[in-house]
Amino acid sequence: MLQFKLVLLGDSSVGKSSIVHRFVKDSFDEFRESTIGAAFLSQTIKIEDKGSQQEVVIKFEIWDTAGQERYKSLAPMYYRNANAALVVYDVTQQDSLAKAQGWVNELKTKVGEDDLVICLVGNKLDLCTEEGESSSKPKAVESSDAEGYANEQGLLFHEVSAKTGEGVKQVFQSIGEKLYEFKKHELANSKGRQGAGGDTVNVQLQRPSTNDATSCCG
């Protein structure tokens, strides 16, 4: 099983925790409290290795972070050693995309593009999909704008609704597939080095044939 650390970043109240809970527990809480500090959850998915047609299990160790400004100083501790980042914005709040772009810049500067899969995610799609409904809000961030930005920056892009579950699984599925593509090459390279007697070869410890002489069975 491959394990990856995934962090969620984004402005306060964009729905980071709701996305995680939809993915991990398939539930939604309309009145979720703000996250304090961080919350850690994990979830596994299966993807198909296109070469061997075999299923591969991937485990996400998800770090759900507090979006408030006061936790900004902790951010480097969140995203250190992360393999993937979900940068979330609220499709009904224009400002939240700008904040998300700020996070993308920070990640690219501090972590480096080669080591991290970044996925830009617009949440709360349910609030603006049904036109004319009294509860609907105008879409403040056009999909084309966000997608264009994501393409420019080489990010994955999805629009989702944590409330209805629309698109949530696909986000993690696409991240898992991209991470596996990266990891597959690393694993192949690592195996090659092992075979060639490189420095990653593990010493195979021999299991002793009998118990220690001091044991009762000795």
Binding site: G37, A38, S73, L74, M77, Y78
Partner: peptide, 12 residues
Amino acid sequence: DQNDLFLHDRIE
């Protein structure tokens, strides 16, 4: 890392 995060936050 996770432990550091919580303790750091609380001391802060």
